[in-house]
């Protein structure tokens, strides 16, 4: 594993933990898109089905189990435990407009027409757009808590670092996975606007708020 991949995985883990911790500590999921979190739970579930079929490494298995568990815990906190604080009116992104096309694309464009491979492909495509309900929610309310922006930054950083990981792997291992690379590029691009706001506002101590 190269340095980019290593930092990326821990950045991803940090994002997940930051979100869980924020909701748990504040006893509230205000400003968090439950829809994005459900999509991430679907992403992890469909991608890590290989936990049942193959063992790659202790690291690989542990991270997968942690990601899946935290993801379901987050969904549980939002829709069950702290349901009263969930801002459903502002979480109005129509997820079927993401899931249906992404499902179709996964059936059409994949490495191998096999169940596990198609579900893996579906998870890669879905992950690339899963943050859209959250970004939509922020654009609708015009603001985000600073801790939420740290979450988004770690999540965006994770995918940006995976791009460097793939460049590294292409040069040193001759490895590349076109599906992951294209979806990863799309995913990273979606964060660019947010990265700009994060650097120009949040890192200078200001709250992230959008012009009306």
């Amino acid at each position: 594993m190269n340095i980019f991949r290593g930092i990326a995985d821990f950045s991803h883990l940090a994002a997940i933990i930051i979100l869980l911790h924020k909701i748990w500590k504040s006893r509230s999921c205000a400003g968090i898109s439950g829809k994005s979190q459900i999509l991430f739970a679907i992403v992890f579930t469909t991608r890590y089905l290989d936990l049942l079929t193959s063992f790659i490494s202790l690291y690989n298995t542990s991270m997968k189990v942690i990601y899946i568990s935290c993801s379901y815990a987050t969904v549980y906190l939002i829709y069950m435990k702290f349901r009263a604080t969930y801002d459903g009116n502002h979480d109005s992104f129509r997820v079927e407009f993401l899931v249906v096309p992404v499902g179709g694309l996964a059936v059409l464009i994949n490495h191998d027409f096999a169940l596990l491979e198609i579900l893996w492909t579906f998870s890669i495509y879905l992950e690339s757009v899963a943050i859209l309900p959250q970004l939509f929610m922020i654009s609708k309310t015009g603001e985000a808590e600073t801790i939420t922006t740290h979450y988004l930054f770690c999540l965006g950083l994770y995918r940006a670092l995976y791009l460097f990981n793939w460049i590294w792997r292409f040069y040193f291992e001759g490895f590349f996975d076109m599906i992951a690379i294209v979806a990863g590029l799309v995913q990273t691009v979606l964060y660019c606007d947010f990265f700009y706001l994060y650097v120009t506002k949040v890192l200078k101590g200001k709250k992230l708020s959008l012009p009306a």
Partner: peptide
Amino acid sequence: LDDDFEKDEL
């Protein structure tokens, strides 16, 4: 489920 399915990335 497929037997030869192996992805090392997360």
